[in-house]
Amino acid sequence: MFTIIISSISLTLIIISLRQIFISLEFEHNIFSFQLFLSIMLLYTIVMIGFGIIYAGLMRQGIIVYRMEANLPRALGIAEIARSIYFSGVTLFTVGYGDMIPVGVGKWLSIIEAMIGYTLPAALVAKVWQKHQVNR
């Protein structure tokens, strides 16, 4: 039950963060600003940690989300969260080192996370460009 609540809160924070940056965040009149940079970094951090918590919560419930190539023992507690956030970061930034492989429901979650990581830069550039065109 605790895992479901934490996962729901993480998913809600991810959705709110994505909505915030695309709907109500106002940038300075420059095409690129320090505020925009910090907003993007914060958004990526929230998405990465949020999905990491979801992965760790599912793993804690016994639902295998990813498999490690090196047969390391199953981690518990903070180590499991750290591994899950690492897996989330590798997935979000579409790096794919190959040391962790999504399995089961993790395949679908990692596809959703990778789509966010892949399309977010293009969407942010389009938003900034559109705002710049309006301000001209």
Rank of each mutant, 00 (worst) to 15 (best):
I101N: 05
V134A: 12
G50F: 08
R136D: 10
F87G: 09
I85M: 01
Q35F: 00
V90H: 04
T12P: 09
A122I: 05
Q61N: 14
H132N: 08
M1L: 09
A114D: 00
V134R: 11
E69R: 12
F32I: 01
R83Y: 11
E80K: 12
Y97D: 03
L109T: 05
F87W: 07
W108K: 14
I23Y: 02
L11F: 12
L42R: 06
L58Y: 14
G77L: 07
K107N: 15
Q35A: 00
L25G: 09
A56V: 06
N30Y: 02
N135Y: 10
I21K: 09
G117T: 01
I112S: 13
T12I: 08
G50E: 10
I112N: 12
A114G: 08
I112E: 08
I15Q: 02
A123D: 12
Q35G: 01
L109G: 04
A79L: 05
A75P: 07
S17T: 10
L124D: 06
A82N: 08
I46T: 02
I21Y: 00
L92Q: 00
E26Y: 00
S88R: 00
A114H: 01
F27Q: 00
V125N: 07
L76R: 14
A82R: 10
S8L: 13
V95C: 02
L120I: 13
I112R: 09
H29T: 01
F93D: 12
Q61G: 14
S24V: 10
K131V: 01
L120A: 12
I31W: 06
S10N: 11
V65S: 13
A79V: 13
F22Y: 09
E80L: 15
G117M: 03
L120Q: 08
V95A: 03
A126K: 12
I23G: 01
Y44P: 05
I6V: 15
L36K: 02
I15E: 04
A75N: 01
N30E: 00
I9P: 13
S110T: 08
V134C: 06
I5P: 11
A70H: 08
G98N: 02
S39E: 05
R83S: 03
Y97K: 10
I46Q: 05
S17M: 06
R19H: 11
S39M: 02
F37W: 10
R67S: 12
I5T: 14
F93A: 15
G57K: 10
G57F: 13
G77H: 03
